[in-house]
Design a protein around this nucleic acid. Structure first.
Lengths: 339, 339
DNA sequence: ATGAAAGCGCTAACAC
DNA sequence: GTGTTAGCGCTTTCAT
C-alpha cells in the first residue's frame, strides 16, 4: 500500500505539493506534462520524486469532474452470456475505447426493459461520453427513450426507420460470399438451409444467395431453399431434403446448422466435401474450426462491430459526414476443408 | 435532450435550486430522500417539479468525489472473447455488482503484462472499490503488483501460495460428480479422457475420478486414463483406445472432447448411450445441449464465479472470517441423454 | 517559473 | 424546515 499516506487516506496532490515544497498548481502542471508552462528542472525533479516516494495516483473522478467530461463509454448489452458472440462485441469495443483513453462501463440487461432504462440512466449519471447499445443477434430494436439524451450508437441492431446510427453485419454480402464459395468450386446445385424466424439474417443471407445464383446464371428454378430451425437439430433434420434435392453443395444458415447437417450426412455415409460440400455462417469459435472436416464458413464480424461502434461514437471514423446512418460490416469468408 | 438547460450546459443541482427557489442543500436532501431531515411537502413538491421539468440528473462523478469512494468495481480479464466462458464471468459479476449499486469497469488485457498493469492503474485512478482479476481458464497466476494497492479477488485463478483471496471451480468435485453419474448407471469400466496440459483441471478432475472409482470399490486396476488434447480432435483420436479398453462409459475432460468422441464412436457404429455412455465437462453453451444425443455433463460455474467474486469483494458473503482464502464453487451435474 | 484562488457538482455539518 | 458554508481532488486563469 504505497498509495496511502500515514493517516491511511489516499495520497492527494496536496500531499505531493507539501512534500515537494511547492503548490498544488505546480504539481498539476508536472503531472500533466503541460508543455506550455515551463517548470524549473529542479522543481520538476523534486515533484517527481515526491510522487514516487508517496506513491501518488491522480484521482480520475476529480479530473473528470472539473473537465466536465468523462472518459467513459457505456456498453449496454441485452445478453452478455447467452452467446459467445456478445463477448466479441465487448472485446472490440473495449480495445478501441482503450486506444482513445476511454474505459468501458458495462451493463447487462437480459432484455429487461426496466433494467435497460436503469442501466442507461446510471450511465448518464456517470457522464458517459456516449453509449453503445448492442444486441446479441442482429435485429431491429426500438431505441429506449433515455438513450436519446446522450450520444449513442446501435451495434448489431438498428432502428427500423434506419435514421439512427448503427453498425450491423452485412448479411447480404455474407450470404453472397458463402454462395460464391460453392459456385467457384464448380457447384451448380447449391441448397440453402435457411431459418424460419424472421430476421435480417434470414432475409439478407437469402438475398445474397439468390444474387450469387443469378449472377452465375443459375435460374430461380435451380434455387433450393430449405427452411429449418437454426440449430444443430435443424441441420440434422434437413439432411433428407438436402439429399433428395440432389444438391452437391449446401450453404447453411449458421455453423450450428452445418454441424447438425454433418451429423446427418455422415450417418448416411455421405462424404464431405467429396459428395457434398458444406458452407456455414458465423465462424463460431468452438465449432467451426473443429468439425471434421473443418468447416468453411463466413465470419460474423462481432469484434469489428464493437470496434467500429466506438470509433463512430467517438467520431474518429473517416468520412463521418457522408456515412449513412447504418454502417454495414462485411462478413469475410473463412475457407477450411468442407468445400 | 431534456437534460440540457437553455445554455446547452447540463442541468445541475444549482439550476434546480434556483428554479424551485430553494437552496442546493434542500435539493440534495429531496434527491437523496434523506429521511432524517424533513422537508415541507410544498417545498418537496416544488423541487420535484423543477427536477422533472428541467430534466435534472445527478452527477455521479461529483457524488463519488465528495463521498471519497466510488461505486466502481474493476474487472480485468485476460481474454474476454477467446471463449464463451469469460462472458459468463462478466455476466455474473455484473449482475451481482448491480444488486449492490455498483457498476463494472471492464478491461481486457489479452494476457499482455503491460496492458494489465495499465488497466489496473487506470482502475485505481478511478477509485474502484476493488478489482476482480479473472482468467478464462482455471490456472495459477502471479498477482500483478499494482493490484495489491487495492482490494482484489482472483476469479477462476489463484496464487500458488493460496494466501490471496480467490474463487475457483471445484475441479475435484466436478470430476467426482461426472464419474458418479456413470457409476450410478451401473458402469464399472469407466474411461477418462484427460488432457496432457498441466492444470488444476487436469489434476483435479483426475483426482475426482479416482476418488469416485475407489469409493465404488473399483480398483486402480480398473482405472482407464487416456491422455489426449482437450479438443474435438483429441476426443476423436482417443476413440480407438476407448474402444480397445472395453470401457462402457467415458468421462471426457471437456465437452469438446466429448464432441470429437461422439464422432469417432458414431463412425464405428457405436451407439451412445446404448453401447457406450459419455459424460462431458463444462456444459458448453453451443455444444452440450445440441449433440446427438444431448450430452450429459458437469457445469463449469462461471456465472457463479463472477457473482461470488463480487460478493466476497464487497464483503457481503456470509462467513467472511473463517472462509479460507480460496473458495471453491461446485460444478453441478447436468443430466441429458448420453448416459 | 511558481503560487493563490476560484470553481467543477455535490454532500454534510451546523446555523437560524 | 431550510439556508450557509466548507470542502472532496483537481485544473486553470491570473498574479507575482
Amino acid at each position: 500500500m504505497t498509495t496511502a499516506s500515514a493517516n491511511g487516506q489516499p495520497v492527494t496532490m496536496r500531499d505531493v505539493a507539501d512534500a515537494a515544497g511547492v503548490s498544488v498548481a505546480t504539481v498539476s502542471l508536472v503531472v500533466n506534462k503541460k508543455k506550455s508552462a515551463r517548470i524549473g528542472d529542479a522543481t520538476r525533479a523534486r515533484v517527481n520524486h515526491a510522487i514516487k516516494t508517496l506513491g501518488y495516483r491522480p484521482n480520475a473522478l476529480a479530473k473528470n469532474l472539473v473537465s466536465g467530461q468523462s472518459k467513459f463509454i457505456g456498453l449496454v448489452a441485452d445478453a452478455i452470456a447467452t452467446t459467445p458472440f456478445a463477448g466479441q462485441i465487448i472485446h472490440g469495443a473495449q480495445d478501441e475505447a482503450w486506444k482513445h483513453g476511454f474505459v468501458l462501463l458495462v451493463a447487462n440487461t437480459e432484455g429487461n426493459d426496466d433494467a435497460e432504462r436503469e442501466a442507461i440512466t446510471m450511465m448518464l449519471e456517470y457522464q458517459v461520453r456516449g453509449v453503445i447499445y448492442s444486441t446479441w443477434y442482429h435485429r431491429a430494436v426500438e431505441v429506449p427513450a433515455p438513450l436519446k439524451e446522450t450520444d449513442f450508437i446501435l451495434v448489431n441492431c438498428y432502428e427500423t426507420s434506419r435514421t439512427q446510427r448503427a453498425v450491423v453485419p452485412n448479411e447480404f454480402q455474407g450470404g453472397y460470399a458463402a454462395t460464391r464459395i460453392a459456385i467457384e468450386r464448380g457447384h451448380r446445385r447449391i441448397a440453402f438451409i435457411n431459418t424460419l424466424t424472421h430476421s435480417p439474417a434470414r432475409d439478407g443471407r437469402l438475398a445474397g444467395y439468390r444474387a450469387a445464383l443469378s449472377e452465375a446464371r443459375i435460374t430461380s428454378h435451380g434455387e433450393i431453399v430449405i427452411d429449418s430451425t437454426p440449430e444443430q437439430e435443424g441441420g440434422y433434420a434437413a439432411t433428407r431434403e438436402v439429399l433428395r434435392s440432389g444438391a452437391t453443395a449446401v450453404f447453411c444458415h449458421n455453423d450450428r446448422v452445418a454441424m447438425g447437417l454433418y451429423d446427418g450426412l455422415r450417418r448416411r455415409g455421405v462424404d464431405i466435401p467429396g459428395d457434398v460440400a458444406v458452407v456455414g455462417f458465423d465462424n463460431q469459435e468452438v465449432i467451426a474450426a473443429h468439425l471434421r472436416p473443418p468447416l468453411t464458413t463466413v465470419q460474423l464480424p462481432h469484434y469489428e462491430l464493437g470496434a467500429t461502434g466506438v470509433r463512430r461514437l467517438l467520431g474518429v471514423s473517416q468520412s463521418v459526414d457522408n456515412t449513412p446512418a447504418v454502417t454495414e460490416i462485411d462478413c469475410p469468408p473463412v475457407i477450411r476443408q468442407s468445400t
